[in-house]
Design a protein around this nucleic acid. Structure first.
Lengths: 349, 349
DNA sequence: ATGAAAGCGCTAACAG
DNA sequence: CTGTTAGCGCTTTCAT
C-alpha cells in the first residue's frame, strides 16, 4: 500500500494542506505543527508522488536525451556527464538511443512530450529529414519545451558544439608541418563535414590542391566506424592511391584504417601517418597510440545541461539561439610519427 | 497552450469519456463517432497526457536502470540493449549512473519511487551496504515494484547473470592446457569474485597449489580498471614474482597489465600469456589481440527486460527468485600465444 | 497559521 | 453505445 499525503495528515492530526505546506516549505507553518508533520512523514516513510505533483505544477523535473548510439564511447561519456549534472540539480533523465533512425527519433520526441519532460537535449542524428525535424522543433516550442542541440546546428535551435573546423585545421596543419602533402581523408557522418572543411581549409592556406580521389565519405547512417575505416582504406589501397598521411573523421575510423594498412603491410607511422578525432579511451591504448583531436566532452555535456536549464528557468523560447563552440585540442602521440612523446600515463585518467 | 481531451471532445462534439474510449480502444465505440473523434485528434494534434493517465492507471510505462558507470563500454552496451528492448514494448527508460557510490544509488531508487517507475533493473553497484540495500528491496516490494538484478546475486531478488565461474574456468583451463602452472590473477570488483573462484577451481582440479602472492584484488570501488591492471602488474613485477601467465578480471585490466609488462620489457605472449574477460570492443582491436571470455551482453540485457516485464505482468512479487545464468564463451586470440587464429574481422561486428 | 474546497487531465464505474 | 460522475494524490486559492 502506498502512503499518501492523507495518511500523513491523519497521523499528524492536521489537514492535508498543512502537510503540503511543510512539504514545499514555501508558506510558513507553525514550528510545532511542522515538527509533528515531519515526524509523521518519517514514521510512515512517506514519499510525495511526483506524478500527482506534476498534475498541478508545470514541471516534471525530468529531461529527455536523444543520442544516436549509446554503445559508442563518445555518446556514452556524454550521456554520463549529462546524467550526473542533471542529477545534481534534482532532475531525472530519459535516454533514447536512436541508432540514427528517424522513426526512432520521432518516437522519442513523442514519448518525451507525453511524459511532459521539462526539456530536451538531442545529439543530432539524421540530417536528412530537415522537414520533419523542423516540425518537431515547432511542436516543442508550442509546448514551451526548451531544446538544446548537441553538435548539430539546427536552424532556430540553441546549440553546444565542438569547434570541429578548428580541430581539423589543427590536425591537418600538423600533418602539413610534418611535411605531408598527399593527405587522404576518411570522414564519418554529420559533423564530420566540418572536419572535411578544416582539411580543405589547410590545403587552401598552403596553396595545395586537394585530390578528390583521396577523400572517402561516410553517410549519415554510417555507424560501424571501424569497419568503415577499414573498407575505405582498403579501397584507397586497391585503387593504388599515393598518400603519406590520412586524416580520419574519428578514432574508430582511424583504427579501422590502421588495420587495413597493417594487412597491406604498410607501416604506421613510418610509411603512412595517421590522425584520428575525438580522443576516445582506446586512442591512447592503441598501438601505435593515436594522434588525435580531443573534444572536451565533459565540459560540453555540462554546458548543454546548464544552457537547457537556464532556458527553462527564463522560459526563453524565442530569443536568438545561442551557439556555444568548444575548443578542440590536438593530442600528439605516435601514429603520425612526430617525435614529441606523449604522456605515457594519459590512459590512467 | 496544451490540447487536452476536453478540447478534442468539444471539437468532435462528444463527451470526454468517448474520446477516452477511442484513445484506449478497449470499449466499443460507434464507427462514425470514432471517426469523428480521430479526426478531431488529428486536427488538433492532441497527445494524451501520460502523467494524468498514470494518476488513474497503475502504470507509468517507465522503468529505471541503475548502472555503476555508463561510460564503461560494457554497461553502455547493456544500457543500449535494455533501452531498445524496452522501447519496442512501449516503455521509456530512466538511467542513473552511480559511479559506484551508495548515496547515488539510494537517491536513484528514491527518485524512481517518486516517479513511480513500473520496474527497476539494477546492475549491482556497491556490495558493502547490504543492510541498506536490503531495506530498499523491502521498500520496493511494499510498493509492488518488480526488480531484476543484473550480475549480482542479491538475496531475494530475481537475477540475470553471466556464468562467470564457468567463464573463468574455461579461461584458466585453457592456460593450463597451454602448459602454464604459475598463473597470476588480477581481479576486479564484485562479480569478479566468481572469476577468482573459477581460477581456484581449475587449480584444485589439477592438484596445483595456488600461490596467494600471485593474486591481486580490486575493491568494490575500483573503477579505473586500466590503471588498476597497470599498477597491479607493476607490483607483481617489482615483487619479482614468477609467473608465465596472467588471468585478468576484465579486458581493461588486461590491457593495463599488458602496458606494465611492456614497460618492463616483458613480451606478450612470448614470455607471459594474458587473458582478459568480457570481450569489449577493444579486446580484438588491441595488439596483441586479447584472448578473453565473451559475455552475451545483448542476450542478457534482453532477458533482464523480458523477465522484469513478465514479473510486472504477473504482479509476481513473492515467488522464488529466478536466476538466469548465461553461458560465457572463450574467445582465443593472440595474447595467450596459442596458435588458433581468430577471425580477423571480428571487430567489424 | 490552518482547513475546506476546487481542480490538474484523464479513466472507470454507473446510468441511460 | 455514450454521457455523467467520481476520483487518482497533490497544490493552491479562499476563507476562517
Amino acid at each position: 500500500m502506498k502512503i499518501t499525503i492523507k495518511e500523513v495528515a491523519q497521523e499528524a492530526g492536521v489537514s492535508i494542506s498543512t502537510v503540503s505546506r511543510v512539504l514545499n516549505g514555501k508558506n510558513r507553518v507553525n514550528k510545532l505543527t511542522r515538527k509533528k508533520v515531519e515526524e509523521a512523514i518519517k514514521k510512515l516513510d512517506f514519499q510525495p508522488d511526483q506524478i500527482a505533483r506534476t498534475m498541478i505544477m508545470k514541471e516534471t523535473k525530468t529531461i529527455g536525451l536523444v543520442v544516436p548510439q549509446l554503445s559508442n564511447e563518445y555518446w556514452a561519456i556524454l550521456s554520463e556527464v549529462i546524467q550526473e549534472r542533471l542529477w545534481e540539480k534534482g532532475y531525472s533523465l530519459f535516454i533514447c538511443s536512436t541508432d540514427r533512425k528517424w522513426e526512432q527519433e520521432t518516437a522519442a520526441y513523442r514519448s518525451f512530450l507525453e511524459r511532459r519532460v521539462d526539456g530536451i537535449i538531442l545529439h543530432g542524428a539524421t540530417q536528412t529529414c530537415e522537414g520533419n525535424r523542423f516540425s518537431i522543433i515547432e511542436q516543442m516550442k508550442s509546448h514551451s519545451i526548451p531544446m538544446v542541440s548537441f553538435d548539430t546546428r539546427i536552424p532556430g535551435l540553441h546549440c553546444v558544439a565542438g569547434d570541429h573546423l578548428q580541430g581539423a585545421i589543427d590536425a591537418v596543419e600538423h600533418l602539413v608541418q610534418l611535411g605531408h602533402k598527399e593527405i587522404a581523408y576518411i570522414g564519418g557522418p554529420s559533423v564530420s563535414h566540418h572536419r572535411e572543411l578544416g582539411y580543405r581549409n589547410v590545403f587552401m592556406q598552403h596553396h595545395l590542391e586537394v585530390d578528390e580521389s583521396l577523400i572517402k565519405r561516410g553517410t549519415d547512417q554510417t555507424i560501424h566506424f571501424t569497419k568503415f575505416g577499414y573498407t575505405s582504406m582498403e579501397a584507397l589501397i586497391n585503387e593504388k592511391k599515393q598518400f603519406s598521411a590520412v586524416f580520419c573523421g574519428n578514432d574508430l575510423i582511424a583504427i579501422g584504417a590502421s588495420k587495413a594498412l597493417e594487412k597491406a603491410g604498410i607501416r604506421v607511422p613510418q610509411e603512412v601517418a595517421l590522425v584520428g578525432f575525438d580522443d576516445i579511451n582506446m586512442a591512447s591504448l592503441y598501438k601505435p597510440a593515436l594522434t588525435t583531436v580531443r573534444q572536451p566532452i565533459r565540459d560540453m555535456g555540462q554546458a548543454a545541461v546548464d544552457l537547457l536549464l537556464e532556458l527553462k528557468q527564463n522560459n526563453d523560447l524565442h530569443s536568438a539561439p545561442t551557439k556555444l563552440l568548444f575548443e578542440m585540442e590536438l593530442v600528439i602521440r605516435e601514429s603520425c610519427g612526430s617525435k614529441i612523446s606523449s604522456n605515457e600515463h594519459s590512459w590512467t585518467r
